[in-house]
């Protein structure tokens, strides 16, 4: 007699995604959907989708979702949480959305200690617009706008958002995880669940989980190679682990 031990969770809508083969967004969506189902908070969760590849996240997660202006999810989340303190508010943002155009919003939401949960997907490149350099692009990384590789003299250094936010007294939990292997995916799920738990308990401050995610299309490698590259190169610049809380 065979028993089902793993299947698609109900909060993840039963439809195909528009993501490229091997994209990390699909894994991250599934983790969030599983956590919402495990905590049984589907009826009172509101998610905020970013501008970027994950702009259509509201088509895949079966919870109330809002699409806001580029980089502004923490600002909108602030309003939603302050007017509806019983709701669970999370924002799902990419590195272009959070670290570039939305740098001021995330910094000040953390600075004010808003009780929101932020899932920050960092793939070190702008995916939706065609693989241009992002603030989190690593030194010597080749992108559409840095064909010779990013140089510190011309384009500056990769922005380490988690380290930056961990210095603020308003943040309570900052952790950096990766989607590079089955074990790391399990750790990522645990971290995001902890961030949701903190908000459920009414902990005073912002929680953020940075997820290092592969972008095989604009790293120009196969999905398997992208996972290896993430594990070997990206985690050196963005060390994994709990930075705060």
């Amino acid at each position: 007699m065979m028993k089902t031990v793993f299947k698609r969770t109900p909060t993840l809508k039963d439809c195909p995604t528009h993501y490229c083969p091997g994209c990390g967004h699909g894994i991250a969506h599934r983790l969030i959907a599983e956590i919402i189902d495990e905590l049984d908070i589907r009826d009172r969760t509101i998610g905020i989708a970013p501008v970027g590849c994950a702009v259509l996240a509201y088509d895949y997660l079966d919870v109330d979702m809002v699409e806001v202006a580029h980089g502004r999810p923490p600002a909108v989340a602030t309003g939603m949480k302050r007017t509806n303190p019983d709701k669970i508010i999370f924002s799902y943002q990419g590195d272009g959305d959070l670290a570039s155009i939305g740098a001021a919003e995330i910094l000040h939401a953390g600075h004010r200690g808003e009780q929101i949960t932020v899932v920050f997907i960092n793939n070190a490149v702008y995916g939706m617009t065609g693989g241009q350099m992002a603030p989190t692009t690593m030194l010597d990384q080749v992108t559409a706008t840095t064909p010779k590789g990013r140089s510190a003299a011309e384009q500056g250094y990769p922005l380490q958002v988690s380290e930056l936010l961990a210095t603020l007294p308003g943040t309570i939990y900052i952790e950096r995880c990766a989607l590079s292997s089955v074990a790391q995916i399990r750790k990522t799920k645990k971290a995001i669940k902890h961030a949701f738990d903190l908000q459920l308990e009414g902990a005073d401050g912002m929680s953020m989980v940075e997820v290092l995610s592969p972008c095989p299309t604009y790293w120009r490698m196969s999905p398997t190679k992208a996972m290896e590259w993430l594990e070997n190169n990206m985690t050196k610049v963005f060390p994994l682990g709990r930075l705060k809380g």
Binding site: M2, K3, T4, K7, Y19, P21, G22, H25, G26, R30
Partner: peptide
């Protein structure tokens, strides 16, 4: 990434 695998045991 597509969450299309069901596991039975």
């Amino acid at each position: 990434p597509e969450a299309i695998i069901e596991v039975l045991r």
